[in-house]
Simulated assay, not measured.
Amino acid sequence: MPLHIPPAPSAALRSVLAALSSPATVREARTPALREAVGPLVPDHPLPMHVLEPTAPGGGLPHARLTGWRFHIRSDERVAAAGETVPTADGWAFSHFCEGPYLASTERALRQADVLTAGYQPHLLSVPGLYMLTLWLHSDLTDDPAVAQPASADLLIPLAPAPPGIAAHRLHRLTDLVPVLTLRLAPTPLLSSPA
Rank of each mutant, 00 (worst) to 15 (best):
V115Y: 15
V178C: 11
Y120L: 10
L171I: 02
V16E: 02
E84D: 12
I157Y: 03
P128I: 13
T85I: 06
L66W: 01
G100P: 07
D143G: 04
T85G: 05
P9D: 06
R35H: 07
G129W: 02
F71I: 02
V26D: 01
S192V: 04
L183N: 14
H123R: 03
L181K: 08
L137W: 11
P40A: 13
V26L: 04
G58L: 15
P43R: 08
R173D: 04
S193P: 05
V147T: 13
F94R: 01
V16A: 05
L133R: 05
H138G: 10
F71C: 11
L34T: 02
G129E: 03
D176R: 14
W136L: 03
V147A: 09
A186D: 13
P122M: 08
S152W: 06
R108A: 08
V51Y: 13
L17K: 10
D76Q: 12
A33N: 11
R170Q: 14
R111M: 13
L103W: 01
A146Y: 09
M1G: 13
A89M: 09
L156V: 11
L177M: 13
L66P: 08
P164D: 15
D154I: 06
R184F: 02
S15C: 05
P40C: 03
V51S: 08
A8M: 08
P122F: 09
G39V: 01
I157Q: 12
P179Y: 07
G68F: 03
A113K: 10
L171P: 02
E84F: 05
P150S: 02
W92G: 02
H4V: 14
R65K: 15
V26C: 02
P6Y: 07
D140F: 05
S21N: 12
G119V: 14
P158I: 11
G165A: 07
L183D: 14
P101T: 07
D144C: 13
Q121Y: 00
L66R: 10
A195Y: 10
A80F: 00
P150N: 04
R65P: 06
A64S: 15
L181Y: 05
Y102K: 10
R184V: 13
P161I: 06
Q112V: 07
Q121C: 03
Q149G: 00
V26K: 00
A11N: 03
S10T: 14
I73V: 00
H63W: 07
V16T: 02
P150D: 00
A104G: 14
D140W: 04
L159C: 05
P87Y: 01
P101R: 12
A167N: 07
D143C: 08
S193Q: 14
E99H: 10
P40E: 12
Y131Q: 15
P48A: 06
Y102I: 10
L191D: 05
L155V: 09
S15N: 04
P163F: 14
Q121M: 13
T25N: 01
E107Y: 13
L191S: 12
L159I: 01
L66M: 13
